[in-house]
Nucleic acid binder design. Structure first.
Lengths: 414, 414
DNA sequence: CTCTATTTTTTCGAGCCTCGAAAAAATACT
DNA sequence: AGTATTTTTTCGAGGCTCGAAAAAATAGAG
């Protein structure tokens, strides 16, 4: 039930607003912040003075080079890197990576590690995650007290509250409450996020002009994932992370999907599906566990070379993605799309069939306007998104506490 | 860009909160309002005293019958019916209806009218709408000065800002800015809403226990429409009213849809599609313009009688709806569904195939949990939703002005 | 080198708003 | 009639934002 605004929430919300403004612009002056927030100069002055006193913001003395304006020069405000730090943990197929990021967003420590996620035992998987985190805490070069939050990301389905992994293609185990486990272990607030959602958040920070209020990030990898931002907010399901674009139905009773069902978009556009079609194994063939990036790249090379089954496999992938996007656009209207992952590097092979399919759907009206961008490398995006998600949590929950607890603000964590 | 909270917004928001609390509960006492809003008794007392002074609320002297509690009895607060009024205009196939509703939600005047929407000229259609509204204004029994807002609803696509009808199956004309037209004509704020969105709003008011934060209203009529409430807010597309569930793709290159494309859910589950399949006309047969409700009812009766093409037609409809819902649920997770419209009365014929289909999708996990409710009569729902939408606009924009203009509050108009 | 114009930032009093505590009001029970 | 109980109002305190004015910091003019 929506709740009234108390008097003391006012300052907290405006504090959060100022912090967010500083994080968004690199070094805004007080005047700029006043302009973007709509608050008065007096208020901004008071709040930023508080924040500087608390060590959250710092004044970066001389503004940009060559400020040849008359008048008192602006003083840039920036985030104090020492104010806090966050940790990101990204768990993907056979790969575990961790990073520590300071409050200003710079990576200050990281570690990466290979492990066989498909066969590892449940406890061992959890153990690997806690161990890699613990090694960060034991690093003598790091001021571990500053670490204020841990954000994990995993390929698969997480719950809405970002507490647990519910299901993931990279492991046979289900329902692992990673957030609780890490919180109990290290006493630091943690969340378990969906990888594609983190991609979307990262895109928004990287290119806010293109990825502003409504856009779609689609992961073209072994499976197909999606992160969706609508009306400026990350879209999630009612119970889970949602947005399982890869498991929308492309053809009822169609090709066998890795999820055990039939006809999902992924069963045509996932790496294993492209591989299966390229090898002409038939739609009933059991999905292979993994296709290496190198194999996918050489498949794409062959497809570009000659019009054989490889090219046809990419065509089918494009068709499935196109009809899927058409159905999605029927619901949300068209929006800019970012294609991420290995197969995004083969988007030239996918695009023609995709556009042809989407043009045959109601959601694909004016399909020529729909713009796609490809980014082959998903891991840096996921880590970046995790970092920003964790940092904005610190902004809101640690440095402007009480904002999230009450009212409906604080949802725009994207 | 999100904006700071000014000091004077505080009172406005809390005013809106109090009004909303009174509209939600029938006759809450000040103490109850304090409890639901989390504001202090002093604040509620001050605000409600203002609102009573302004004639927006009234004290309904004796509380409920038999308040055998000790202590000072609660004084119920209720909306003053005379504070304002709104008008609803519902435009559906061959049918135009208007109603005037007082501030407390009671219908005080109405008119209904048949007209041939499929063939009427553009200007004549607009003329009929303005004329029927004007007749309300000329009614000597009505205090026309009280009418503070007009809400129109139409089957079809409207724009996000609720200004114009972009496309509708009930007329060949497109892009009619009804909201602007009525505003210019009568000088009263107007909006043009999507019919299924209004159904969803009405369901939420009718049965808030079942239809609270996440649910789906599907209109099974000549076409298939959807109204979606997610996280307590009405879901709309990025540019249009969105939620075109009927035009998600069920079978690529499948049956001919009324929209001219192929394989849409509607091309299997719309009345014309059920009719076409029952008559075994083939999937390429041009959709008929209209099937009467009586014809649909007798079709359902035949289908219940014997296992012929009629039953098969409903089975195909159920299958299309099931796979469509499965894809939808893959995106948003399962939620309660209300089936509305003539064919909702035949939901017994549709349900088995629907459940079978949905069980074969990723979104249909635990499909036996998904609950459906049928409501054959859509028109009262649409009108009710329009009324509530218009009334909550009055609550917010007229009686607590400035709330919508700033910040992110006021979105939960559903 | 001094003075003025210009722009940014801080200071200060005014005006609101919400809150908690206490008072007032209105009833049931004894 | 008196007491207990519950609701509602009153009132002073504390906080917040705002506008205006002052202070600070610079570029350009003479």
């Amino acid at each position: 039930m929506s709740v009234g605004i108390r008097h003391d929430d006012l300052r907290r919300r405006n504090r959060a607003m100022v912090i967010a403004a500083v994080r968004r612009a690199r070094q805004p002056s007080r005047t700029e912040i006043a302009a973007t927030t709509g608050l008065s100069h007096s208020t901004i002055s008071a709040i930023s003075s508080d924040l500087i006193g608390e060590g959250i913001l710092t004044e970066s003395k001389p503004s940009e080079a060559g400020s040849l304006k008359r008048g008192r020069p602006q003083v840039g405000l920036s985030l104090n890197p020492e104010a806090a730090a966050v940790m990101t943990v990204v768990l993907s197929l056979n790969f575990l990576s961790v990073a520590v990021i300071d409050y200003a967003g710079q990576v200050i420590s990281e570690e990466q590690r290979r492990l066989d996620t498909l066969t590892i035992a449940r406890d061992a998987l959890i153990g690997e995650c806690t161990a890699i985190v613990r090694r960060r805490f034991e690093d003598p070069d790091l001021d571990v007290h500053r670490i204020a939050r841990i954000a994990l990301a995993i390929q698969g389905i997480t719950d809405t509250r970002a507490r647990a992994m519910l299901w993931s293609p990279i492991t046979p185990h289900t329902d692992i409450a990673f957030a609780d486990i890490l919180e109990d272990e290290f006493g630091i607030p943690a969340t378990m996020e969906n990888d594609c959602n983190m991609m979307a958040i990262a895109l928004r920070w990287r290119d806010p002009d293109r990825y502003r209020n409504d856009f779609i990030a689609i992961l073209l990898s072994h499976g197909i994932g999606m992160g969706l931002v609508l009306k400026g907010e990350l879209f999630t399901g009612t119970h889970s992370s949602g947005g399982e674009f890869g498991h929308m139905i492309h053809r009822p009773n169609g090709a066998l999907c890795r999820c055990g069902r039939r006809g999902c978009v992924e069963a045509y556009a996932g790496n294993y599906a492209i591989w299966r079609n390229a090898r002409q194994l038939g739609e009933d063939a059991e999905p292979v566990a993994d296709v290496s990036d190198a194999d996918m790249r050489s498949l794409a090379a062959v497809a570009r070379e000659s019009d054989g089954p490889e090219r046809e496999a990419y065509r089918k992938a494009g068709e499935a993605l196109g009809y899927g996007l058409g159905s999605l656009f029927a619901l949300i209207d068209p929006a800019p799309v970012a294609m991420v992952g290995v197969s995004a590097a083969a988007f030239d092979l996918i695009e023609p069939a995709l556009r042809k399919a989407i043009a045959q759907t109601a959601g694909g009206q004016h399909s020529e306007w729909i713009s796609f961008e490809a980014e082959p490398n998903e891991l840096p995006l996921i880590r970046e998104g995790c970092a920003m998600r964790a940092l904005t949590f610190v902004d809101q929950e640690i440095f402007a506490p009480g904002v999230l607890a009450r009212g409906s603000a604080g949802k725009s964590v994207a």
